[in-house]
């Protein structure tokens, strides 16, 4: 299993548009991916947009992605890059 830790810098947090992009990206991998908001300890399936949005991730919150599966290495690298770029 691989993990990615990231602190959100986007002023509105993981809101509709980036959440949509994030879920789209996560759905492209075979691995199971969960995302946890360390602020409230809620965890969601990263491939489900409603669940991801209901984590209520705001600016300054730390999220942890847990990635498990065949393509976990690529997923880890690419998702980390995506987070840095967009959020």
């Amino acid at each position: 299993m691989k993990t990615v830790e990231y602190v959100i810098t986007d002023p509105v947090g993981l809101h509709a548009r980036p959440a949509g992009l994030f879920v789209k990206k996560a759905s492209a991998y075979q691995s199971n991916i969960t995302v946890k908001n360390t602020e409230n300890d809620k965890t969601a399936d990263a491939k489900r947009i409603m669940a991801v949005m209901s984590l209520g991730v705001k600016q300054g919150n730390k999220i942890i992605l847990s990635i498990e599966g065949e393509d976990e290495n690529t997923a880890q690298a690419e998702l980390e890059a995506f987070l840095k770029e967009s959020l």
């Binding site: 509709a16 548009r17 959440a19 399936d45 491939k47 489900r48 947009i49 669940a51």
Partner: peptide, 14 residues
């Protein structure tokens, strides 16, 4: 983009 997000919601498995 909002309509695209709406579409994703309509594909949400939960």
């Amino acid at each position: 983009m909002i309509f695209d997000v709406h579409k994703m919601m309509l594909e949400d498995l939960d």
